[in-house]
Write a protein that binds this DNA or RNA. Sequence first.
DNA 1: CTGAAAGCGCTTACAG
DNA 2: CTGAAAGCGCTTACAG
Lengths: 338, 338
Amino acid sequence: MGVTTMQDVADRAGVSIATVSYVVNGTKAVTPATRAKIEAAMADLNFQRNRAARALAIRRTQNLALVYPALERRLGATSVEFLTSAATAANRSDYHLTLWPVSNDAVGLKDLLSAGLVDGVLLMEVLLDDPRVTTLRDAGTPFAMIGRTADPSGELYADIDFDATVSAALDRLESLGHRYVALIGERGGTGALPGYGPQVRTDEAFARLVAERGLRSVTVGCEQTASAGSDITQQLLAEHPEVTAILVRNEQATLGVMVGVRQAGLRVPDDVSVIALGTTGDISTMSSPALTMMQSPGEELGRLGVEILVDYLESGTRTPPQLVPCTFLPGASVAPAR
Amino acid sequence: MGVTTMQDVADRAGVSIATVSYVVNGTKAVTPATRAKIEAAMADLNFQRNRAARALAIRRTQNLALVYPALERRLGATSVEFLTSAATAANRSDYHLTLWPVSNDAVGLKDLLSAGLVDGVLLMEVLLDDPRVTTLRDAGTPFAMIGRTADPSGELYADIDFDATVSAALDRLESLGHRYVALIGERGGTGALPGYGPQVRTDEAFARLVAERGLRSVTVGCEQTASAGSDITQQLLAEHPEVTAILVRNEQATLGVMVGVRQAGLRVPDDVSVIALGTTGDISTMSSPALTMMQSPGEELGRLGVEILVDYLESGTRTPPQLVPCTFLPGASVAPAR
DNA sequence: CTGAAAGCGCTTACAG
DNA sequence: CTGAAAGCGCTTACAG
């Protein structure tokens, strides 16, 4: 029932409570015979050491906070993967993950930190210029970012490798003969944060890579709805009829882009290839033809974020930045250039 | 820095630590003058009482576990809303929400409970016959369900009001002259759990309500992909050409259904109206025409679940079951019957 | 109204 | 290798 205490175990094993603690934690060497008695007693009593008491004694809670913006940005299905993976990774290291929805302006963040509730913070949806990072740094709270600020040097973080992601998408398109590629991103709308890293870094990577490869290109943005995606796509294809491939980094607009191609009198993928960037696999099966996509590594980022943070907490190790490319998810929306 | 202790406050205010505790917790009456001194000292020192010490002393952690199946069922965007709302509601009552992804067979659930890590559990994605419920009940852990088992009597829960939801959808269709309505649910696929409540209860409500209203109806199911949705829809419309409206309770297939209507040579909503049941608003803007839907009350369920649980923990109140209908989200996929 | 003191269940120098 | 005891920072009868 969880009411068994270390004292109960000690009594039953006929040893002191200190010795029980030594075997539970592996802190000190203990005679095999003594250890056996204690382990038997623990099994009999179904002993689980009390977290609160331990936390008080060692002055660490083994709790991690997952801080994310409650309202500012709608989190999609990728986030659930991310959360689950982070929580699972935490559990593996005997930590727990507490959900901490706060507003982006860092209100409420300070109170959290001083209550000694958590040992460290995992920060999601990091902005290029993020007040929460400043707050955490000033407070001296250990933290790791998922994403990164404009200048993240010296901080702990894991992020998407936007360069490798865009590069992989272009590789595939080039190999199929595409020479004129469009990028549709976000613009306006309630979900678009100013200085949102993934957007800015994707744009930069795209601009540089098409130049390096000598590809023709065009970049536009639209609000995060299907109809905006459809509209911008029709306009795009009217103004740049030679475009044969579109990269979309705008989850809500993606399916609208597919519709827009059709409404322009063209077919996916026969006339125009479409690759969705950085979304979750769900959307692929939701569309027909199934979308070809570069899938966000939500699971890997969740795990890495926790590992980086825990390593730092446990051993002071400052793991270098971890950049993970999106993974290619085959679909039916890409074909050779017409 | 969080290192200020109650003793520090007591020293600075020139009182005993007990008195500080009294004003912090409002446990006992304290002279206005004394209170003022203590409050000033707390403000000066930026005091936050230590959670672990408090938890140890009062034998309650003020932590809640959010238990959900890590792998068995893909959680969609509704879940994020739900999580956020639950966490926010918990914070409002000075509780915290810890993520607890476990497998559906309840492995790992027992350890959680005996470590005294949480005071109660919020259970998501409840099955009609759910082993986790048995485990929790046997362990004597306070818990509240989001959803419910086949016989939830005596338990604490909040769930969707499937009757009211289907009824509202039918109201709308009937008022537009629809007399022959199809329901497309889930079947097979990796995400379909045997005895998944929302599916079973929607089917039951639909069957009963169409009978009561004297509507013609047909019920089918398909896997959770757009292509399955498209296929089943074409087949459905071929076999039942007089169907003028479709309810879809299969998030992944929904957009496929729209495609299927078109491929059957019909238009949405001119020839066939479509209403999505129990999904998140995201999907509405992702489709064009925008989907009309009955939106899952994720936010309300998250809040209610926590409130029910906290009320029970704090005062032993057993709030009666809370059933919340999905809310109508207007779109462009419904029109008068042809 | 206020305080001294025991107790919550662990951990960890320190002594033996 | 094992144990007695102090201490982590609170809460709460109990006494005054």
